[in-house]
C-alpha cells in the first residue's frame, strides 16, 4: 500500500472517530444533563424511552427533524439559514486541534491521536471561539424579533468580554509550556498539571469557559424568563437542533480545552491515556451540569462587572506574576 494512502485512511478514520464521538457525545450529554439535573431536583429525569431512557436522544432527534421548519416573515433568510450552521460547525472544528490521547503505533508508524497538531493550536481555538459568536449574533439579528435581537446583543458583549479573560488565562499556560501547540502543552504537564502549578489561571479559565458556553449561571443570551429563548427564539426544528447540538459540542470542546490546558490531558497513572482524557473531560462536563443545577443566573450588570472588573484584572496580574516567576526561575532562557 502506498504511503499516502495509509496516511489518508488514517486521517479519515480519525476524523470519523472524532465526528462520531462528538455527535453522540453531545446527544448523550443532553441526556446526562437532563438525568443529573433531575436527580439533583429529586426527580428521575427521562426514563421512558428505552432502558433508563437511553434512547431519548434518538427520540429527540426524530422529533426535531419532523418539526415544522419555520422562518419568520421578513427574516433575513440567508443569515437565518447559515447562523445555526456557523454555531455547530465552529464548535465541531475546534476539536481538530485537541489531542485526545498519547501517540499510538499503527502499521509501524507513529500516529498522533489528534487530527491536526497545529503549532498555533491555542490561537486556532481562540479564533474559532470568536467565530462562534457570529452564529449566535447573526441568528438573533436575522430573526427579525426583539427577543432574539436582545439575546444576540447580550451574547455578543458577553462572549467578547469573557473571551478576553479566557485568552489572558491561557497566556500563563503558554508561558509555562513555551509552546502554542496543544500537544506540547500536554507534554509539558507530564509532571504536574498546570491546574496545580497555577491555580488562579485555572479558576479564571474555568469561569470564563462557563461564560463562553452560555450556560447557567451565565446564560443571559437565552435567559428564558426575561427574553423567551434569546437568540434562538425564532428557530424551530432541526435549525434549533443545530444550535442545541452546537451548545453541547461546545461544552465538550471547552471541557477538553480545560483538560488539555490545565488538567494534563491524557497524563495519569495506571489507566491508558485516552481513558484518562475522557475521564477528565467527563468530570469537567459534569462540573458544567452541576453548576447548572446549583447556581442562579447572574444579573446583566453583575456579569459585566465580574468579567471586566474582576476576571480581566486578575488574569492580567496573573500573567505578570507568572512571567516574573518564570523569569526568576530560569533567567537564561527568558
Amino acid at each position: 500500500m502506498p504511503e499516502w494512502l495509509v496516511t489518508t485512511i488514517l486521517i479519515l478514520v480519525k476524523l470519523g472517530f472524532v465526528f462520531f464521538l462528538l455527535l453522540t457525545g453531545a446527544a448523550y450529554m443532553v441526556l446526562a444533563e437532563r438525568k443529573l439535573l433531575g436527580r439533583m431536583q429529586l426527580r428521575y429525569g427521562p426514563n421512558r424511552v428505552g432502558p433508563f431512557g437511553l434512547l431519548q436522544p434518538l427520540a429527540d432527534a426524530v422529533k426535531l427533524v419532523t418539526k415544522e421548519d419555520f422562518i419568520p416573515s421578513q427574516a433575513d433568510k440567508f443569515l437565518f439559514f447559515i447562523a445555526p450552521g456557523i454555531a455547530a460547525v465552529t464548535a465541531l472544528l475546534t476539536f481538530a486541534v485537541v489531542p485526545f490521547g498519547p501517540p499510538i503505533r499503527l502499521f509501524g508508524r507513529e500516529v498522533p491521536l489528534v487530527i491536526c497538531d497545529l503549532n498555533i493550536g491555542v490561537l486556532y481555538f481562540l479564533g474559532l471561539s470568536s467565530l462562534a459568536v457570529y452564529g449566535v449574533t447573526l441568528g438573533g439579528w436575522a430573526s427579525n424579533s426583539k427577543y432574539a435581537l436582545l439575546g444576540s446583543i447580550r451574547a455578543l458583549s458577553q462572549l467578547i468580554s469573557y473571551e478576553l479573560s479566557m485568552g489572558l488565562a491561557i497566556v500563563p499556560v503558554v508561558l509555562m509550556a513555551r509552546s502554542f501547540s496543544l500537544t506540547n502543552i500536554v507534554n509539558a504537564q507530564a509532571g504536574l498539571p498546570f491546574a496545580i502549578l497555577n491555580p488562579p489561571a485555572f479558576l479564571i479559565f474555568l469561569v470564563s469557559v462557563l461564560a463562553e458556553s452560555k450556560r447557567i449561571p451565565f446564560d443571559l443570551p437565552e435567559a428564558e424568563n426575561e427574553i423567551v429563548a434569546g437568540f434562538h427564539t425564532e428557530y424551530s426544528g432541526m435549525r434549533f437542533g443545530l444550535f442545541f447540538v452546537g451548545e453541547y459540542i461546545n461544552v465538550i470542546i471547552l471541557s477538553s480545552m480545560v483538560t488539555v490546558l490545565f488538567l494534563g490531558g491524557w497524563h495519569g497513572p495506571l489507566l491508558p491515556g485516552i481513558v484518562w482524557f475522557f475521564l477528565k473531560v467527563g468530570f469537567i462536563s459534569f462540573l458544567f451540569i452541576w453548576t447548572r443545577g446549583t447556581l442562579p443566573r447572574l444579573r446583566y450588570d453583575q456579569l459585566m462587572h465580574f468579567g471586566w472588573k474582576i476576571l480581566v484584572p486578575l488574569a492580567l496580574v496573573n500573567v505578570i506574576v507568572t512571567g516574573a516567576i518564570l523569569l526568576l526561575l530560569n533567567p537564561a532562557k527568558g
Partner: peptide, 16 residues
C-alpha cells in the same frame, strides 16, 4: 454549600 446540597440530593431517592 449550594454545590454540596445539589451533590447530596443527587444520591437521594427521587420523590417522583
Amino acid at each position: 454549600q449550594a454545590y454540596w446540597i445539589t451533590l447530596r440530593n443527587m444520591f437521594r431517592k427521587p420523590v417522583t
